[in-house]
């Protein structure tokens, strides 16, 4: 590893906007889930566990999506530097990608840990009981896979803007992860049917709920008790396929991109 790894972690962890939207803003919703939306949840272990699992899946997806916005923006603003360092320093495109991915994963994992700890703490305080995950190792694994997906979509989107020379759309494109994250959040009220398998955000949400509570979620409309039970194997395959495809495309794009000047990225 070069100094890029540690300095990228430092840069992201000291970025006030990234910290605000990924952690502080979502913490507000943790409190809302516990004390407002959770007011009528019966204080029965099984009910609390399913409710906590729903909260973890939904809020983790939003939190990681917000982090993905920060990663996309940072990538876009440094695209010319990335082009330069991959040509004229020891960071080859693949080595850059590996170090960028590893450092982003550290941050995404820390954000996930904060989400888990705060949900556990606030929900224990509210319901008077701690409901640990049913399948903790699987939950950690799927959380990491979710982090990997968020990294892959950030890298893909930012590189696509540069390769397809669309700097004017940079601002909008960088928000796509959060927009899709909020769409998946809509699964609380809306049945996505087969789309629940197509959307990787819905897959992350569903897998987290399953590994936390041990209960298979439906394809959507959780609040209304609608949808049909999801196939967890299929959801996992879909997520892995998305991660693989986006990572492969990002590596391909990284060699093709020439970078885009900061001045070309329209600031709305």
């Amino acid at each position: 590893m070069t100094k890029y790894f540690t300095l990228n972690v430092k840069s992201m962890l000291t970025h006030p906007e990234l910290l605000f939207w990924s952690i502080a803003f979502i913490e507000f919703w943790v409190v809302m889930w516990a004390y407002v939306f959770g007011a009528y949840v019966p204080k029965v272990e099984e009910a609390v566990k399913i409710y906590t699992a729903d909260a973890y899946g939904s809020l983790l997806t939003l939190s990681l999506s917000a982090t993905a916005v920060g990663i996309t923006e940072a990538f876009l603003h440094s695209s010319r530097s990335i082009r330069f360092v991959t040509k004229y320093t020891k960071l080859s495109p693949s080595r850059f990608m590996a170090e960028h991915m590893a450092s982003s994963m550290v941050v995404l994992t820390l954000v996930s840990a904060v989400m888990f700890a705060s949900i556990a703490g606030v929900f224990t305080q509210k319901f008077g009981m701690y409901t640990p995950p049913e399948m903790p190792l699987e939950l950690v694994a799927v959380t990491l896979l979710g982090c990997l997906f968020m990294y892959a979509i950030s890298a893909f989107l930012s590189l696509a803007v540069v390769v397809f020379k669309a700097p004017r759309s940079a601002r909008f494109v960088s928000y796509i992860p959060l927009i899709l994250g909020f769409l998946a959040y809509g699964a609380l009220w809306m049945d996505f049917k087969a789309l629940a398998y197509v959307s990787p955000f819905n897959c992350i949400l569903a897998l987290c709920i399953y590994y936390y509570s041990g209960v298979k979620p439906t394809t959507g409309a959780f609040v209304m008790g609608g949808g049909v039970e999801m196939n967890m194997g299929l959801a996992l395959c879909s997520l892995v396929a998305w991660v693989s495809a986006l990572t492969a495309l990002s590596i391909l794009f990284l060699r093709r991109m020439k970078g885009v000047g900061i001045e070309e990225i329209r600031v709305v």
Partner: peptide, 8 residues
Amino acid sequence: EVYSLLSV
């Protein structure tokens, strides 16, 4: 622009 790799 080539020295803007990180915001540090």
